[in-house]
């Protein structure tokens, strides 16, 4: 990977109590690219993803060693403000989780937390974020309706819009399509393709075809280790490691 990296990890180890969930993971995540993490259940791909915005801090008895750099800043340094970090590194979860508020309020919530008060400015951010998330045309007439009335696919795009509203640099997606039907999935995948113009996307997916379709780089993880990481085309056409080969050809997992 010769492209400039936005996130670099160096020898990251993570334990949940005694369980060694990540073992010496070193990965470079190129900027303005989509990187997919694949691997069998429990291999640590979501755990690694959650390291990037320190979501694991919220879990008791977690111990992390090693370095995680975001734009040359160590995200575990005492000077790092976690709220600022999570503004820079947004996250979209497996199950759409809109707030039980209006569509408008869902998107405006983040900017408000970060101090935007001006109504016109908020209106602009809401519209721009919804447009970026490819859902504006579907909701522009009903911004004051409850977000819970949207379909699953719309809710997920609303959650992406909510993430975009605070202008992150990196968007983490943890199985963003696994609760969606194929059409809603295709919309999210198209959206991911467009998002990489302005953001860096890291996506965890159990769906290998999806990883192959949407990503530029793919990392394969197995029992807490990053086995192989490279250009998606290389990983899916001729992986270097036998383990990767066996996993992506369905011989295990």
């Amino acid at each position: 990977m010769s492209e400039s990296a936005i996130i670099t990890t160096n020898n990251v180890n993570l334990w949940y109590n005694e369980k060694h969930a990540l073992e010496s993971v070193s990965i470079r995540v190129p900027k303005n690219r989509v990187t997919a993490l694949i691997g069998p259940s429990g291999c640590g791909k979501s755990t690694l993803l959650r390291c990037f915005n320190r979501l694991n801090d919220l879990i008791d008895h977690v111990k992390i060693t090693g370095e995680i750099m975001l734009d040359d800043e160590n995200i575990h340094a005492p000077s790092t403000d976690v709220v600022t970090l999570r503004k820079k590194v947004g996250m979209v979860f497996q199950k759409p989780n809109p707030f039980p508020k209006t569509i408008y309020e869902n998107v405006a919530y983040g900017p408000r937390v970060h101090g935007v008060r001006d109504k016109a400015e908020l209106d602009r951010i809401v519209e721009e974020s919804l447009r970026h998330a490819a859902i504006w045309d579907e909701v522009k007439e009903r911004l004051n309706d409850s977000a819970l009335g949207l379909s699953g696919g719309q809710q997920q795009r609303l959650c992406i819009a909510r993430t975009l509203a605070v202008e992150p640099e990196v968007i983490l997606m943890d199985e963003p399509c696994s609760s969606l039907d194929p059409i809603a999935t295709a919309k999210i995948e198209n959206l991911i393709e467009r998002l990489k113009e302005d953001y860096t996307v890291i996506i965890v997916t159990h769906n290998m075809q999806q990883a192959a379709r949407v990503s530029d780089y793919t990392g394969f993880m197995y029992i807490g280790k990053l086995i192989e990481c490279g250009k998606t085309r290389q990983i899916f056409e001729h992986p270097k490691e036998e383990l990767t080969e066996n996993y992506i050809t369905g011989r295990f997992g």
Binding site: Q209, A212, E237, H238, P239, T244, E245, T249
Partner: peptide, 9 residues
């Protein structure tokens, strides 16, 4: 089957 890696090859 959308084959990959050696299967595709």
């Amino acid at each position: 089957n959308q084959p990959m890696a050696k299967d595709m090859r």
